[in-house]
């Protein structure tokens, strides 16, 4: 195993064919930026932020529906903080609050159980957004709600699976040379889950942690194993081969995979998690959100997420779309490619 100094030197001096490496997950995008990794790489190594920022891939109509619910009498929308400013067609949740929308920013979705018990006249709608990391939480909440006989909790889901999106990118644009697989999602799905994809498309896939050292090592791994259809688990001790069986079981008990719409990518078969069986009664109309598949005009989200364009190449970047006035969700989230890019180049 090479020491860090040698790895740094090799990454800086790399002079082979240009390499495109996709970090799938938003937390990696943020960690790469925080550690200044971009400045440590040869100009021939390009890092691309993939579709793993849940806010960034949430379609506009999902926000519109949340706004609508939050303005309905006796309804309250509960959401994590970073959904607040995502623009819908007309307005964001935070703007809707200005005209009386009932929106509660939650720290833990489990708090909804207490609230629902205390106020049976109010319907609590959770904005269930995220990947395999958050999906089991919502499954657990609904199991508890069902045991307690609570009838006033609903989920509007935009829950997604990461593997179908990676496959979509590979099958549409086979220009990515290697992947940094998401550390947190991998704790749930296990590193073996990437193996079929790695083998089919002959790409090295590295499950990586979040420290600077982890990230350098993972990028170096891709450099050394270009063209090899292998999965490398560089986050051992945290990520296992099979992942978290209990969490997977919980997800499958409550949710089933079906087609979902990804902002920027469009509809992808079996890429969403939807409530099923006895839990379907808790759904707030999530299936209906798949009808409208048009993308907002002018936004290059799609090209940015699949790595065809950098955020700065979008005609809206820095003009109509900035962190203070986001047009596309990649600009809203602190983990979105555009938001991070803006921070890097602005001032």
């Amino acid at each position: 195993m090479k020491n860090q100094e040698e790895i740094l030197k090799q990454l800086k001096n790399y002079d082979g064919p240009p390499l495109k490496i996709m970090e799938v997950c938003g937390t990696h995008t943020a960690a790469l930026f925080r550690n200044g990794i971009h400045s440590l790489l040869s100009p021939k190594i390009q890092l691309i932020s993939g579709p793993g920022c849940p806010v960034c891939v949430t379609p506009t109509q999902y926000i519109d529906r949340l706004v609508e619910i939050s303005l309905t009498p006796h309804h309250q929308v509960w959401t994590f903080g970073d959904m607040m400013k995502v623009p819908g067609e007309e307005e964001s949740l935070s703007q809707a609050m200005g005209r009386g929308a009932q929106v509660h920013m939650m720290y833990s979705p489990f708090q909804v159980l207490e609230a629902a018990l205390a106020n049976p006249d109010i319907t609590y709608v959770l904005a269930a957004v995220g990947f395999e990391t958050t999906t089991p939480l919502y499954a657990q909440i609904l199991k508890e709600a069902r045991e307690k006989g609570l009838k006033n909790i609903r989920l509007l889901t935009s829950l997604k699976q990461i593997l179908p999106a990676m496959e979509w990118i590979l099958s549409h644009r086979n220009t990515i040379d290697g992947f940094l697989c998401p550390g947190h999602v991998s704790t749930i799905i296990g590193w073996k889950a990437y193996q079929p994809l790695a083998e089919t498309y002959k790409k090295p896939m590295v499950v990586a942690g979040f420290t600077g050292t982890h990230l350098l090592k993972a990028i170096h791994r891709i450099l050394e194993h270009g063209g090899e259809g292998k999965v490398f688990n560089d986050y051992p001790g945290v990520v296992s081969e099979e992942g978290n069986l209990l969490a997977k079981q919980l997800m499958e008990e409550v949710f089933q995979p079906e087609e979902a719409v990804w902002r920027g990518l469009g509809a992808i078969v079996d890429s969403g998690w939807y409530l099923k069986g006895p839990f379907a009664v808790y759904d707030m109309g999530s299936y209906d959100l798949r009808k409208d598949k048009k993308l907002p005009p002018g936004c290059l989200c799609r090209e940015v997420i699949i790595g065809d364009n950098t955020p700065a190449e979008c005609p809206m970047f820095g003009t109509e779309c900035s962190p203070n006035h986001p047009y596309g969700p990649c600009m809203v989230s602190e983990e979105g490619a555009c938001g991070i890019w803006y921070g890097r180049i602005s001032i």
Binding site: G36, F80, M83, T133, S346
Partner: peptide, 19 residues
């Protein structure tokens, strides 16, 4: 690690994020 990056001013509130 020896990398260099910008530290932009905070935009909006520092909200806890989803995952």
């Amino acid at each position: 690690l020896g990398g260099l990056r910008r530290v932009p001013p905070l935009v909006g509130e520092g909200l806890p994020r989803i995952c």
